[in-house]
Computed example of a mutant assay.
Amino acid sequence: MKKLALSLTLMMAIVASYAQTTREIEDINEDNSWLKLGLNLGVPVADLGDYSSFALGLDVAAQFMRTDNYGIGVVSGYTKYFAKSDVVGAQDFGAIPLGLMFRYYPQPSGFFVGTDLGYTFLTGDIASDGGFYIRPQVGYHNYDWNIFAFYNQVFTSAPSFDIQTIGVAATYNIRFK
């Protein structure tokens, strides 16, 4: 997993270095920056899949297009993991990520790749308070929407309790003015 994180980070750095026109943060306008609001639905995998049946969450992000193809920003949200009813002692819990987002958009509309990196705070009566997370994603985007598949992993201090989820999400772009 560490190799995947390193590869994605390296890919984003290479893409950024080939960018021709960069914007400064004070150049924020409705054409290059927006708030993303959306929903995600995931299936817990690995050990977590034995205790949780599905995850449902809200995503929120602020994105700035540093170039025409490369976006950066901050992300957060909330995801609730629902316990399996047939597992004794399993309880629902929540995850609140706080991180940075990196996106590469080859065209103004179409395919995109990206990742979120940061820290996830865990809520509820569970074995850990949180940990570093990575959320690589691939999907489709247009002027208003992003629809994507993702893999999310939270690396906790109790490795037997790492949170791994595969899912889909959709976000709507609200333009800054």
Score class of each variant (00 low, 15 high):
residue 166 I to N: 00
residue 61 A to C: 08
residue 142 N to S: 14
residue 155 F to K: 05
residue 105 Y to V: 00
residue 168 V to E: 08
residue 52 S to E: 08
residue 6 L to D: 08
residue 119 Y to I: 03
residue 104 Y to H: 11
residue 109 S to L: 09
residue 176 F to Y: 15
residue 60 V to Q: 05
residue 112 F to V: 05
residue 88 V to A: 15
residue 103 R to S: 05
residue 170 A to R: 13
residue 169 A to K: 04
residue 139 G to S: 09
residue 133 Y to Q: 01
residue 142 N to F: 10
residue 123 T to C: 04
residue 53 S to I: 07
residue 66 R to T: 08
residue 176 F to E: 11
residue 7 S to I: 14
residue 62 A to V: 07
residue 42 G to P: 07
residue 135 R to V: 01
residue 127 A to F: 06
residue 59 D to M: 08
residue 97 P to A: 06
residue 148 F to T: 00
residue 129 D to Q: 06
residue 99 G to D: 03
residue 73 G to I: 08
residue 46 A to N: 12
residue 128 S to E: 06
residue 16 A to D: 05
residue 34 W to G: 08
residue 115 T to I: 06
residue 35 L to K: 11
residue 63 Q to G: 02
residue 14 I to W: 07
residue 50 D to C: 01
residue 160 S to Q: 07
residue 129 D to V: 02
residue 23 R to V: 03
residue 168 V to M: 10
residue 34 W to L: 03
residue 51 Y to I: 14
residue 105 Y to C: 01
residue 12 M to H: 15
residue 94 G to E: 05
residue 13 A to E: 13
residue 1 M to A: 07
residue 93 F to Y: 00
residue 131 G to R: 03
residue 40 N to R: 14
residue 151 Y to E: 07
residue 33 S to L: 09
residue 126 I to N: 09
residue 13 A to D: 06
residue 31 D to Y: 02
residue 39 L to F: 11
residue 15 V to N: 05
residue 117 L to P: 01
residue 54 F to L: 01
residue 109 S to N: 13
residue 43 V to K: 08
residue 28 I to H: 00
residue 141 H to F: 03
residue 10 L to Q: 10
residue 132 F to I: 09
residue 70 Y to M: 08
residue 49 G to P: 01
